[in-house]
């Protein structure tokens, strides 16, 4: 118990420090001291001289972006942890049940078939339509997989996992056709959606993402007992009085909400929900009382730095953040597969 508390506190401090450091990194460098001054100035608690250019960079560009990375990271990682608990399998991840792929596919559909009506880079309306379509795609694919795997008031987890694989394949094929049909500008937009970027972050999108993230946190952090009990088995969890069916519904809805909203604004960012809980289980054990909060913090930390790398590595251009998380995540995925093979 002590060890897990130390990990959580360390992660919390590291996340806060990273928030300051990562928002100082870039073409205009802002030191931690300046960062503090700028924030106090903006809040009206400090009346001194500040560099107005740095203030604008921090307040309008960096802070919403870094906050978005922290919030998206937290929600993707905690949803990954929740899905792994629900599926009783460490390979479960928000993208595995087809939510991310469904969302990205419907975004691509809008880009290609509605682009004659809008200019996507500039139109606010088009942006909103795109976001709604993406969120809708996430909800639809979740509901589809949920309906598919329901039988007699119970969820068949095997069907759910295999159904997720099928949705992923379908969405990938559909996106492939759209890429074939798309022109150059559309192609770039599709790339943005399938590989992810936090470049579009504003205070409005940050607020929406914060709403979804805190909803997930509030619900999921109250349920460590149910997740722990599920590792005994679904029936065994019912025998010790855990509301298993209610948990399934909650996890499905929260995952659709969190992942849908984050894909809508940031595109597909995979593997966060896989890597973070896996590493944290290795260092601190599988108890969900520790794993759920630690995952949220670990995901925030990971995505904060993944985004910092994505925007500084080849500045002023950007490496898509999905590429970076995949580069970190795929080896971990293979490692888990290898371990599972060794176990059998």
């Amino acid at each position: 118990m002590q060890r897990s508390k130390i990990i959580i506190i360390t992660l919390a401090i590291a996340t806060l420090v990273s928030l300051v450091l990562a928002s100082g990194i870039g073409a205009v460098h802002i030191s931690a001291l300046e960062w503090g001054q700028l924030l106090l100035y903006k809040l009206g608690w400090w009346q001194g001289e500040v560099d107005s250019q740095k203030l604008a960079v921090l307040w309008i560009i960096r802070l919403p972006r870094v906050l978005t990375s922290v919030l998206v990271g937290a929600s993707l990682a905690i949803c990954g942890t929740a899905l792994q608990g629900l599926f009783r399998n460490p390979l479960a991840e928000p993208s595995i049940i087809g939510i991310s792929a469904g969302a990205a596919f419907s975004a691509s559909l809008v880009i290609v078939f509605a682009s004659s009506a809008f200019t996507f880079a500039t139109s606010w309306l088009a942006g909103s339509l795109l976001s709604i379509a993406t969120f809708g795609g996430a909800v639809l694919s979740t509901l589809f997989i949920f309906a598919l795997s329901r039988q007699k008031y119970k969820t068949n987890v095997t069907v759910m996992l295999l159904g997720g694989i099928a949705i992923n394949a379908l969405a990938a094929a559909g996106t492939g056709i759209l890429i074939f049909l798309a022109d150059d500008a559309q192609l770039r937009s599709i790339t943005f959606w399938t590989l992810g970027s936090l470049g579009g972050a504003t205070w409005t999108t940050t607020g929406l993402i914060a709403g979804a993230t805190f909803t997930s946190l509030v619900f999921l952090l109250r349920l460590p007992k149910v997740f722990n009990a599920l590792s005994l088995g679904e029936q065994e969890a019912r025998h010790i009085g855990m509301p298993v069916e209610r948990l399934k519904t909650q996890v499905i809805i929260l995952t659709a909400l969190s992942v849908g909203i984050s894909v809508a604004f940031c595109g597909v960012i995979g593997f966060v929900g896989l890597v973070v809980p896996h590493i944290l289980r290795l260092v601190g054990g599988a108890n969900f009382r520790y794993l759920l909060p630690a995952s949220a913090l670990g995901g925030a930390l990971l995505l904060c730095w993944a985004d910092a790398i994505s925007r500084t590595l080849v500045a002023p251009a950007e490496v898509p953040i999905g590429v970076i998380t995949a580069l970190m995540g795929a080896p971990v995925f293979l490692l888990i597969l290898y371990q599972q093979k060794a176990k059998v």
Partner: peptide
């Protein structure tokens, strides 16, 4: 309380945490 056959734990826990699960209600 029910003890079923062939319980397979999907995640690994310390032994006393497994027993504590019986107290979850």
């Amino acid at each position: 309380a029910v003890l079923t056959q062939n319980i397979h734990m999907s995640h690994d826990f310390p032994v006393n945490e497994v027993v504590l699960m019986g107290r979850y209600p």
